Amino acid sequence: MRVGLFVTCLVDAMRPEIGFSTLKLLEAAGCEVVVPETQTCCGQPGYSSGDRKAARALAEKFVQEFEGFDYVVIPSGSCGGNVKTHYADLFADDPAWSARMARLAPRVYELTDFLHSVARIRDLPGAGKCSATITYHDSCCGLRELGVQRQPRALLEQAGVTVTEMKDSRQCCGFGGTFAVKYGDISSAIVDDKCANIQASGADAVVLGDLGCMLNIEGRLRRTGDDKTRVLHVAQVLAGDI
């Protein structure tokens, strides 16, 4: 199957190694992977901030770049949720674009959902390579907009990774994009609760599927003196790049 990989602008700018781990996993699943060089942002920041014009322009760009693939895979629940859930709203007043998006949407998948539900990957590159005990954080958009919860845990179990569930794994980390900037005190209180639950689990690392949450959690852990708990993207663990 021919897969278009949407790397996400945050991964591209901040942690490109996540993109390479994603590529390794997709190729291990037998996919022909194409990374369109003109890709940029899915438009989520603009959409969430009310800038529909900018968000619509990026949504059109995304559809044009990816509608020719069998599947589109995104290593981010928030970007995947924006595309699958909110593009329909952006195109609601345009029948032609709505139809194009309706054809594309069923082929857009978050990474772990695609690997588990579509590709049904058997040989994970990272199988048997992670000896650390981990706990898993369910990122809000992936969980609530895409139903991603069981899939990453199933893949981690398949890779032989021990998962110790933390208290309130489904609770927000407090990032929420510009929410963390506009409501800093509230965001800090939320992420403090998340960090406390991670530490109380006794895990060596917290694993998750969204870089925004990763940066928020890791930043708070380090600022409060925890320089031991690792913060990893699920793609890195499954690919053995840790």
Results as ranks from 00 to 15, higher is better:
Met1Leu: 15
Leu5Met: 12
Cys9Tyr: 06
Val11Arg: 02
Val11Leu: 10
Ser21Thr: 14
Leu23Asn: 01
Ala29Pro: 04
Gly30Asp: 12
Val35Trp: 10
Glu37His: 11
Thr38Gln: 08
Cys42Asn: 00
Gly46Tyr: 15
Tyr47Asp: 00
Ser49Ala: 06
Arg56Gly: 02
Arg56His: 14
Glu60Trp: 11
Glu60Val: 15
Phe62Ala: 03
Phe62Arg: 05
Glu65Asp: 07
Phe66Tyr: 09
Gly68Phe: 13
Ser78Asp: 01
Cys79Met: 00
Gly80Gln: 04
Phe91Gly: 11
Phe91Pro: 03
Phe91Arg: 05
Ala92Gln: 15
Ala92Trp: 10
Pro95Glu: 15
Ser98Pro: 07
Arg100Phe: 08
Ala105Phe: 06
Glu110Cys: 07
Phe114Tyr: 10
Arg120Glu: 13
Asp123Glu: 15
Leu124Tyr: 02
Pro125Asp: 01
Gly126Trp: 00
Gly128Cys: 13
Ser131Met: 06
Thr135Cys: 01
Tyr136Arg: 04
Cys141Tyr: 07
Gly147Asp: 10
Val148Ala: 03
Pro152Ala: 02
Arg153Gln: 06
Thr162Lys: 10
Val163Lys: 10
Glu165Gly: 06
Gly177Arg: 09
Gly177Pro: 11
Thr178Trp: 02
Phe179Tyr: 13
Tyr183Arg: 10
Gly184Leu: 12
Ile186Gln: 08
Ile186Arg: 12
Asp192His: 14
Ala196Val: 01
Ala196Gln: 13
Ala200Leu: 09
Gly202His: 10
Ala203Glu: 02
Ala205Asn: 04
Gly212Lys: 08
Asn216Tyr: 11
Asn216Val: 10
Ile217Asn: 01
Glu218Ile: 09
Leu221Lys: 05
Arg222Val: 11
Arg223Ala: 10
Thr224His: 14
Asp226Trp: 12
Asp226Val: 15
Lys228Arg: 15
Arg230His: 14
His233Cys: 03
Val234Ser: 03
Gln236Met: 04
Gln236Arg: 03
Leu238Phe: 09
Ala239Gln: 05
Asp241Met: 15
Ile242Thr: 08
